[in-house]
Design a protein around this nucleic acid. Sequence first.
DNA 1: AAAATATGTGTCAATTCGACACAATATTAG
DNA 2: CTAATATTGTGTCGAATTGACACATATTTT
Lengths: 246, 246
Amino acid sequence: MNFETNNYLNSVSLDCVVFGFHDNQLKVLLLEMKFSHEWALPGGFVQLDESLENAASRVLKERTGLDNIFLKQFKVFSDPQRSKMNPAVKDLIESGADPNLEWFAQRFISVGFYALVDFTKAVPTPDFFSESAEWENIDEIENLMLDHNLILQKALQTLRLQLNYQPIGYNLLPDKFTMPEFQKLYETILGKTLDRRNFQRRILSFNILNKLPETKKGGAFKSPFLYEFNVENYRKALENGLTGGW
Amino acid sequence: MNFETNNYLNSVSLDCVVFGFHDNQLKVLLLEMKFSHEWALPGGFVQLDESLENAASRVLKERTGLDNIFLKQFKVFSDPQRSKMNPAVKDLIESGADPNLEWFAQRFISVGFYALVDFTKAVPTPDFFSESAEWENIDEIENLMLDHNLILQKALQTLRLQLNYQPIGYNLLPDKFTMPEFQKLYETILGKTLDRRNFQRRILSFNILNKLPETKKGGAFKSPFLYEFNVENYRKALENGLTGGW
DNA sequence: AAAATATGTGTCAATTCGACACAATATTAG
DNA sequence: CTAATATTGTGTCGAATTGACACATATTTT
């Protein structure tokens, strides 16, 4: 297998910050480069006949096996210095892959997407440039390739802001979940604890949840009720925002 | 004068939705193409050594004469069909400008920016492709070139959402302004009226205004107090958001 | 000087928010 | 088998905020 460069749009790449939630930890999907062994965000290029959104979906389908992932553009990274000396190029040379070096050496601007996925359903899968794909805890991530630390930081910042006026959790939690689990998700993203009772009151006021008659058995102590998202109301809330504001 | 294509990044363009406020109307800066006579958003390309933000600033400096404009990326438009049959190409041919047709015929993704400028200070100036530059009332805009109607609509939507969690008005109002003027700005952007007293109470609670000892003379009837933005607090509010949320 | 009209400011009830406590239940320890 | 334990479910109360509304004031016009 080689990497064909002819079919891609010049100058443009995309990088995805894929968030997952597990063990009360916010996690991000990272790839380890084959040769430089640096860690990087999953990314890719845009085919001549596809939109950025389709390209990002395609890339994430390859990296996680999942379709219909929640995806959002959040910023284009375009510092002229950002893609100089891309370590992936060195990897390609050492790999003997006979890459089109001229193409890889060009300047790229990269469109940042963030994605929210169900940790339990995603199957991390490396790409042509990487040897492994793994979930990493958000607070244990060290040096990433190129400007990927910056991209990650901006994605997290956007996600936190998003929390104030849009619902979150669909595609990030399993189909049925408990209120404490939902709260942990918020607490993890925000990096602080919230009052249990006030959280529940506020969330319920958004009308995006259906309370199910079942409870979650098997955990220790009192078994909590299960909830599911009210997909229709969730969609409306995504469109119109939560608070009203003005 | 000709248009040199060698110095620009391939495949990438940018379009700016420049908002101004005058006569209680929200206005957008538009250009009329030289030959097709279609109207379009001001836009441009990215030089090989500049960031998107710098490119947008450069373009807006040329189109308005202004520096330090408030600028915000809001979305990349990347539908593969969006730039087919760009009317500007036809214009170039008819202009006898001997353009690099191959370059202009390529597919472009376009990064959308919106800008907020002081209407009274901006001097609309056409570019190489256009014969005039004018302010147009937001609700009187008809068919624009390519997907520019979509870009405008998305910009407005983003601006309205922005209003709920970020301050607005700096660079859009003159240095000194009255509370009724400020309210009109909000009402115009939102497309609805607000209660005078509640508006003032809310705005003042944001602590982004300094009340001046002067009043605005010359208008009819009781002369309203003048305010100016508290730049330091305004900047903080931009960073941290207004409401707090969680 | 009086009329007209927009601005400045205050009040009150309804609602929401933040802090907090106690009852209920499933598991585990003895 | 029973009691201890830890977690969840739910409610209350005062404080703060919000929404609806009214009257006094200032400036120009007649």
